[in-house]
C-alpha cells in the first residue's frame, strides 16, 4: 500500500503541488524549489533561512560587510591572504540583472596543508544558474591559472563544491606566485551561455 499511496511534498505549505511515492520523497524534497534557502555566507555561523527573494535583503541587513560590484568582468582583490587559520573573503558581483556571490576560502583540510578554494554561486534557482558560466583567473609574473565552470545556485550552496574540490583550488605556495604585498587579485568574469 505504501508504494501505491502518493504523499505530498513536505514543502506543500510553501506552494509545492507535487505528490510522490514514499521512496521518491526524500530525493525530490532535497532539490524542491520550494525548500527554504539557507544563508549563502560561508561558514555555518548564520542560521537564517527564507525564500529566494528574501536572501538579498538578509545579506544587506545582516551581512553589511559584504560589498557589491557591478559588472561582468571584475577583479576581486583579497587582502591579507597570509592571515592564519580558516578565513573567508566574500563579495557580490551584479550583472545580467542577477547577483553572484564570490567566495574565496582558506582552509586546512589536511593538517599542515592550507589550501585556497574559490567558487561562485548565483542568488537564484538551479535552473537560472545553468544559464551562466563563470571564469576565475589568477595572473601575474608571466603565469596564469584559470578555472571555468557553471555557478552553483545558492540552493545547493558551495560547501559541497569546496568539499569535492569542484572549484578553483590552489595551495599557499601557488597563491604566493600571484600575490602582491599579501593581496591576491582574482579576475572574475561572468558570461551567459
Amino acid at each position: 500500500v505504501a508504494q501505491t499511496v502518493r504523499f505530498p511534498c513536505k514543502y506543500a505549505s510553501s506552494g509545492c503541488e507535487i505528490t510522490l511515492p514514499h521512496q521518491e520523497k526524500a530525493a525530490h524534497e532535497e532539490s524542491c524549489e520550494f525548500r527554504p534557502y539557507s544563508c549563502p555566507c560561508p561558514g555555518a555561523s548564520c542560521k537564517w533561512q527564507g525564500s529566494l527573494a528574501a536572501i538579498l535583503p538578509h545579506l544587506m541587513h545582516q551581512h553589511k560587510s559584504i560589498t557589491t560590484l557591478q559588472g561582468e568582468d571584475i577583479v576581486f582583490l583579497a587582502t591579507a591572504i597570509d592571515l592564519p587559520g580558516a578565513v573567508d573573503w566574500v563579495m557580490m558581483q551584479s550583472c545580467f540583472d542577477f547577483h553572484f556571490m564570490l567566495v574565496l576560502e582558506k582552509q586546512e583540510k589536511y593538517s599542515g596543508h592550507q589550501q585556497f578554494f574559490a567558487a561562485v554561486q548565483l542568488i537564484g534557482t538551479r535552473k537560472q544558474a545553468d544559464g551562466f558560466a563563470y571564469r576565475l583567473e589568477l595572473s601575474g609574473h608571466g603565469r596564469r591559472l584559470i578555472w571555468e565552470a557553471t555557478p552553483r545556485s545558492v540552493h545547493e550552496g558551495i560547501a559541497m563544491a569546496i568539499m569535492n574540490n569542484d572549484c578553483l583550488v590552489f595551495d599557499t605556495s601557488v597563491a604566493q606566485l600571484f600575490a602582491e604585498n599579501g593581496n591576491l587579485g582574482i579576475n572574475v568574469t561572468i558570461s551567459k551561455c
Binding site: L77, T79, V90
Partner: peptide, 24 residues
Amino acid sequence: RTHRMPKEIRVEPHKFAAELIHRL
C-alpha cells in the same frame, strides 16, 4: 578596441566562524 581595465574591489578577510563566537 582599447582593453578596458576591469573594476577592482578590495575584499577584507572575514572570519564568519568567529562571527558566531562573537555573538555568543
